[in-house]
Amino acid sequence: MLSFLGRRVLFTIPVVLIASFVLFIFVRATFDPTAQLRSSHADSASVAREKERLGLDRPVVVQYGDWLGKFVHGDWGQSERTREPVFGMIRRALWYTVQLIFWGILLSATVSIFVGVYSAVKQYSPLDYTFTGLAFVGLALPPFWFGLIAIEFLAVQPVNWFHLQEPIFSFVGLHSGDSTGFNLDYVRHLALPVLTLTVQIIASWSRFQRAAMLDVLQSDYIRTARAKGVPRRQVIVKHGLRNALIPLVTVMALDIGALFGGLIITETIFSIPGMGRLFYESLLAGDATVLVAWTVVTALFIVAFNLLADVLYGVLDPRVRMA
């Protein structure tokens, strides 16, 4: 197991290096950090000075090496938009996104596993058909649409319908005013964005879990367990779910990794200053320094969660550990 882990970790190093190099080149080729200076009609001498200060006059490979060295040491440069250190900006944004992902995944995993197992065990029951129908509707609800509909019908309109003082669910940020920590206010802010981000995830994971569970329930070892006299519930959970979770956990890890840079629309709709919003704002401002760091950080998360998926697979399936 340890050598499997070691090999797998070593393998990610070239992946990360290649990904960061490609991302660096692409951002450099697309954005010009001196664009702002140019547009303010600065003379060519001051543009050249700025280029030299940023090292843009050197070959791109040298620039990359320079950037990588600083990146590893936590010096991610300064935003051209806000003049803040990029490291702090991303750390702050990441914290918001991590909160969304944590609650969203907790909800998605719980609901999907329950729905998937139920649908498989009671295949073709009315509730299975209901879940199947809802899953297809859910898959067809993109966040930009569902988020706005949720705000309208779960926050804005209920105020008129029930003559409320204020909406039950808030849709701006994760806290109101100076409130902090885990409290009712936090839950009221979280509800809609978490719902928005989970709808499609629950729809796809529950279908996946249903298929995996159906597959496992037909296997010979389930029959063996029943022939041993193991009670039905124990057969389903201990023998069935234990094996059906293996493929789901892999899919989960991969999906979660992609979420760190994937909540651009949800965060924008709900004005949450997370990674998605940071990307959106930096993109509009042409903030190359932030964009390089941002794309590399999200790539790191994807690689890390790919690694996690592999490791979990090995932990859950004893047959993989050997190889």
Binding site: R223, T224, A227, N243, P318
Partner: peptide
């Protein structure tokens, strides 16, 4: 059962 590889739980 026949074929004990599939009849035993791999986990």
């Amino acid at each position: 059962f026949q074929d004990a590889l599939t009849a035993l739980n791999p986990a």
